[in-house]
Each structure stands twice: as structure tokens, then as C-alpha cells.
Nucleic acid binder design. Structure first.
Length: 585
DNA sequence: ATCGGATGAATCC
DNA sequence: TGGATTCCCTCCGA
């Protein structure tokens, strides 16, 4: 990762003294001002007073002149880049297209010398794919595979079915952003959601109006939820309030299994927060990890803490993810802010005894074993790369593949996590939201990407013109062709087009608009009603969520425009069929 | 419309 | 080591 270009000091102050005319009134003409550009006059005031207006223009005033009571005060309006503060270019949205600052490393791949628009990872045929050195190309297994097996392997892998249509949604369901999602293990249409405020939502998306929000389970961020393996009416949740809750979904009755802050708030250096959590049903233990690098275990039968906390990541660093191997119950995977994902043997858990340490360049947001065989690991790192680590066909010293993908860290967003498709028998499909936006026919949208991690190819990008916010939280259904997304405070359920209601039928009946801050309408002349019905809110406040009917759907993309991956097959060819035939191996 | 605030990791000294 | 500072596509609401 190249070091970020440090922000340079403010450009020199421009002092423009109009000596010619008394009336040197400020001019808005930029060109005129450009001409005045140049080395500032000798005696520059040290105490510069420069402010920015909303457009990134700098307004400079010569205060010393003002103080001296000298005549002309010239205000210079000068366009500078809001990112690097240099003139000559401007970063930011131009319409729905974001223009990068050319002085910064590429926002997508983080390499210097080009911008997102021209990033090779954006236009390459194999989008974003950087195969790691193939150390194992020459091994026996692969040789045999290539020479003898491959010709006999059925060339067609079962088609991916992509849920690409929003079929129902709860808008502003949560009062803060969604932080985690979990499908019910047996009831196909129940979705759980946790938020930053500590609330837990239970939503039946088949009967969209049946929903519940439990408010008193936690006091801040719900980081992870898991269903109890022996009772799917109970859920565990790990929160930044330092507790693990156990909640009865029917009644909402909740109890605390563990509280790491029994003495309350003593300052940030002692406040413990719980992040990663998973259940090892084989052993009957709940595993949780905190923001200081420690792992805790709770016996799910007695609901009591077992053993001592173990330091599994750098002391003082946050452990954001835990995952138990689906096949080998003694294997545990952890990841965190020390830039590592680590594999552990549950039978010998002690500091420093990890089986493998998977190095990343930045914080690792998530690390998951592949859902069926557990032999592959998919990690999401804040260096804008997905990594696949293969314990069978590769060794774990380096990833077997790196995929450049835009999922930057932003303190205001829930961290992105690439999630496996639990239904894919080939263990190659993953879903992850995209940070960077794309101009989709005039709207800046942030799609949700489906990536074939065995090839690095983008299989599909799904978006809806009504979802203008980033969707960092995504989960694929364990049995059905359904995707659940959390975007800001809202939840969305996606299904494949074939299975959804025809678009024409998509209407408000499947879209629940929840509260949100009430706009205080000042007593304007009577026209507007005070009716607070959903329809009213729908029209007046749900500016992003006026679900469009088919006819108002965007027209096909204009051909000239440069599109993210537009030249590539995936999205361009998707509309006709939502099935994509992919060849295995 | 515009602006401020919440707030996490990296970096610098 | 720790405190201050900075930060590029947020999102909401005053």
C-alpha cells in the first residue's frame, strides 16, 4: 500500500490589489481571476484567513489590508480541488459520475499514477483479478487434473441464480444504520437485523408488515448475531456494550450471558466491546472476541463463562470476526485490526499458538471458511482486496487469489464483508457491496457485487434506482435464492427476476416505510395535509424510495459513457438472462 | 439547499 | 508509546 500523499499546506494566499480603479468590486469571473494568478506579492500576511464555501472554492481576504484601512479589498474566488487543495482540477461528483483527484492514488486499487476511471482493474477483461503467484501450478495434483481429468469434467458448472430484483423492503426500519443480518435457520422468511444503536429487528419478509424491533437488548452496536444451535427460537448477540445477550425471539425476553464492563464506563481505555462471535455446536461453546485482542468462551448449556480469556490477536487490537470450521470443529478462524486472519486449534488455544497467520495489508473485516468443505477461506480487507486462501490446493503462506474490489473503510459505514453463497456446491460464489458508485443512467448507485472467487470474475452487479445508499451488509439465504441487504437504516430482500412479482406489480404493498424524524411543517398555507399516513410520507419524505414502476425504470445505458466494467460481459449481458453459464476450473 | 455531526484507522511527531 | 491530526464517493436532519 503506497503511503497516502500527505495533504499539502494551503496554497499561497492570493492578494489581488486593484490599483487601477476605485471600484474593484469582487468579480465572479473565474477566468479573470485565473489571469491574476501568480506569485503572491512580497509582503504576505502570515495570518491568512481562508475559508471554503460549499463549492470547494476558496475565498481569500486580505485581512491586513482591511486592518490598515487600505482601500481595495479583493476577494478571490478560485476553484481548487477539494481533495488536494490544488487548482487546475476538481474532484467530486459531476452529475452522477465521480471524478477522482489525479494527485491521489487510485481510489480503487490504491496504486499511484492513475485514477479510478482508468484503473486497469476497472476495465480489464477479468475485472479486478490479480492472480497470486501460482506456486502450485506444477504440482502433481494439478498436472493430473490438467492432463487427464479436465477433459472429462462436465464443462458446465450449475448456473448461478442471482437475486437481482428488490421484491420487498422496510425503509427506515432501524433508527441507526444496520450492522448485521442473519437468516433464521429453519423459518425461511425470517430475517434478523442488528443496528448501531443496539436494536434487533425481526422481520417476516413474506408477510412484510410483520416485524418487530427489540430495543432493550443492547445499548450500542450489535456486531454479530447467531442462533442457538439447540433452540432456533433463541439468538445470541455480541455488542459493543460489552455484553452477550440471549434473546427469546417470540417474547423479546433477553438476558445477559456475559458483561465485560461490570463497573460501567471508566473511560475508553478500559471499556470492552464484543465484536466477533460464533458458535461451536460440537463443543457447545459460544466464542466471542473483544476490542483488546481477547477471546472468551461461554458454555451454552450452563450459560457460563468457561476458561480464561485468550489473547488471539495483537494486544489492544480489535478482533472483528470469528468463524468455526463447518467440517472440522476444532478449527477456528479469527480476524481483526492487527491485519491478520489466524487459524486456531481449539484444543490448544493459547496466545501465540495459532496454526496459521494470514497476513493482510490492512484491517481484516471478515474471514470465513467456505461453507461446505471448509477448505477455503475468504477474507475482506480494508486494502480494497478480497483474498482467497486455499488449504488444499495451496498453502496458507500467501493467498491463492487477490481480487481488487471497492469496499473501502469509512468510519460512517458498517464495514463491508464478503459472504459466501451457502448454497453454491462449488464454493465459488460470494457477495459483497460496493463502495464506489457508478453512473447508471444518471443515477449514482452503489451496486452489490456477485463475484466468482475461483476466477475473480464479477458474475453480476445488482442495484435498484431507489437504493441510493451504500449496502455494506449482505447475506445470502441458506436455502432460497434470496439476498438480504442492509443499506443505511433500511432492509431489502432481493429475488431473481423470474421468481419476483412482475415489476409492474411491485408497489408499496411490499415496501414498508417506517418512521424517521418528523419534518416539522411550518404552518404553510393550507395545501398540505397533516395526514401522516404512509402514502404521505412516501411522497414527501421518501425521496429515495419512491419505488418506480416499470415504465419509469431507467432506459438502457447510453453507449458512449464509460462504465465500470461496461465493456465486460457480466452486467452488459445480464439483462436478458439472469443465469450465467460458467465453466468450471 | 447547505451545513454540521457522528466517529475509526492511519499517520505523524 | 500516545496524543493530535487528518481523512476521497456517508447519511441524516436541523
Amino acid at each position: 500500500m503506497p503511503p497516502r500523499t500527505r495533504r499539502v499546506a494551503f496554497p499561497k494566499v492570493l492578494i489581488e490589489r486593484d490599483t487601477d480603479s476605485e471600484q474593484s468590486s469582487s468579480s465572479d469571473d473565474e477566468n479573470e481571476l485565473e489571469e491574476n494568478e501568480g506569485p503572491p506579492s512580497e509582503s504576505e500576511p502570515e495570518e491568512e484567513d481562508s475559508t471554503k464555501n460549499g463549492n470547494g472554492e476558496r475565498i481569500e481576504e486580505d485581512l491586513s489590508l482591511k486592518r490598515k484601512g487600505k482601500e481595495p479589498i479583493t476577494i478571490s474566488l478560485k476553484k481548487v480541488c477539494k481533495v488536494c487543495k490544488k487548482p487546475g482540477h476538481e474532484a467530486g461528483f459531476r452529475g452522477a459520475t465521480y471524478i477522482d483527484c489525479p494527485m491521489k492514488p487510485c481510489f480503487l486499487c490504491k496504486m499511484p499514477g492513475h485514477t479510478t476511471m482508468t484503473c486497469p482493474h476497472r476495465v480489464a477483461i477479468e475485472h479486478g483479478v490479480t492472480p497470486a503467484p501460482r506456486k502450485n501450478t506444477r504440482n502433481t495434483v494439478e498436472f493430473v487434473l490438467q492432463r487427464q481429468l479436465r477433459p472429462r469434467i462436465l464443462p458446465i458448472k450449475p448456473a448461478y441464480v442471482i437475486p437481482d430484483q428488490v421484491c420487498c423492503a422496510v425503509i427506515r426500519y432501524h433508527s441507526r444504520r444496520v450492522t448485521c443480518l442473519e437468516f433464521h435457520p429453519t423459518k425461511n422468511n425470517i430475517l434478523l437485523s442488528g443496528d448501531k444503536k443496539g436494536q434487533v429487528g425481526v422481520w417476516d419478509f413474506d408477510k412484510v408488515h410483520e416485524r418487530m424491533v427489540y430495543q432493550d437488548i443492547h445499548t450500542c452496536i450489535v456486531n454479530n448475531m447467531r442462533f442457538k444451535s439447540t433452540d432456533d427460537g433463541m439468538i445470541y448477540a455480541a455488542s459493543s456494550d460489552g455484553t452477550i445477550s440471549s434473546t427469546d425471539l417470540e417474547t423479546g425476553m433477553s438476558s445477559s450471558l456475559m458483561n465485560l464492563n461490570p463497573n460501567g464506563w471508566q473511560g475508553p481505555s478500559t471499556w470492552r466491546m464484543l465484536y466477533g462471535m460464533d458458535i461451536n455446536s460440537e463443543k457447545g461453546v459460544l466464542l466471542v472476541a473483544d476490542n483488546f485482542g481477547f477471546l472468551y468462551m461461554v458454555d451454552t448449556r450452563s450459560n457460563s463463562k468457561t476458561g480464561e480469556a485468550v489473547l488471539i490477536h495483537k494486544k489492544g487490537s480489535k478482533v472483528v470476526g470469528l468463524h468455526c470450521n463447518p467440517v472440522q470443529p476444532e478449527l477456528l478462524l479469527s480476524c481483526g485490526n492487527d491485519h491478520f486472519a489466524r487459524i486456531w486449534d481449539m484444543r490448544q488455544l493459547k496466545a501465540g499458538s495459532s496454526l496459521s497467520d494470514l497476513a493482510h495489508k490492512r484491517v481484516v473485516n471478515s474471514a470465513y471458511f467456505s461453507p461446505l468443505s471448509g477448505s477455503k477461506i475468504l477474507t475482506t480487507s480494508q486494502d480494497n482486496r478480497l483474498r482467497i486462501w486455499d488449504s488444499i490446493f495451496g498453502n496458507l503462506d500467501s493467498p491463492s487469489r487477490e481480487i481488487v474490489h471497492s469496499h473501502d473503510f469509512n468510519r460512517h459505514l458498517t464495514p463491508f464483508r464478503a459472504e459466501w453463497d451457502p448454497k453454491d456446491p462449488t464454493e465459488s460464489l460470494a457477495v459483497i457491496g460496493r463502495y464506489i458508485s457508478e453512473n447508471y443512467n444518471g443515477a449514482a448507485l452503489h451496486p452489490i457485487d456477485f463475484i466468482d472467487i475461483s476466477t475473480g470474475q464479477l458474475v453480476a452487479e445488482v442495484m435498484d434506482p431507489n437504493i441510493t445508499t451504500i449496502s455494506p451488509v449482505n447475506k445470502l439465504h441458506p436455502r432460497d435464492d434470496i439476498l438480504a441487504s442492509g443499506s443505511s437504516r433500511s432492509l431489502f430482500i432481493w429475488r431473481p427476476k423470474e421468481k419476483s412479482e412482475p415489476v409492474e406489480k411491485k408497489d408499496e404493498s411490499n415496501i414498508i416505510i417506517c418512521g424517521g424524524a418528523k419534518k416539522k411543517r411550518k404552518g404553510k398555507s393550507g395545501g398540505e395535509s397533516d395526514d401522516d399516513s404512509e402514502d404521505d410520507r412516501y411522497a414527501s419524505k421518501g425521496k429515495n424510495f419512491q419505488f418506480k414502476k416499470a415504465e419509469s425504470k431507467p432506459a438502457p445505458r447510453p453507449r458512449k459513457e464509460v462504465h465500470f466494467r461496461s465493456s465486460r460481459s457480466s452486467s452488459a449481458k445480464l439483462p436478458t438472462s439472469h443465469y450465467l453459464l460458467l465453466y468450471s476450473l
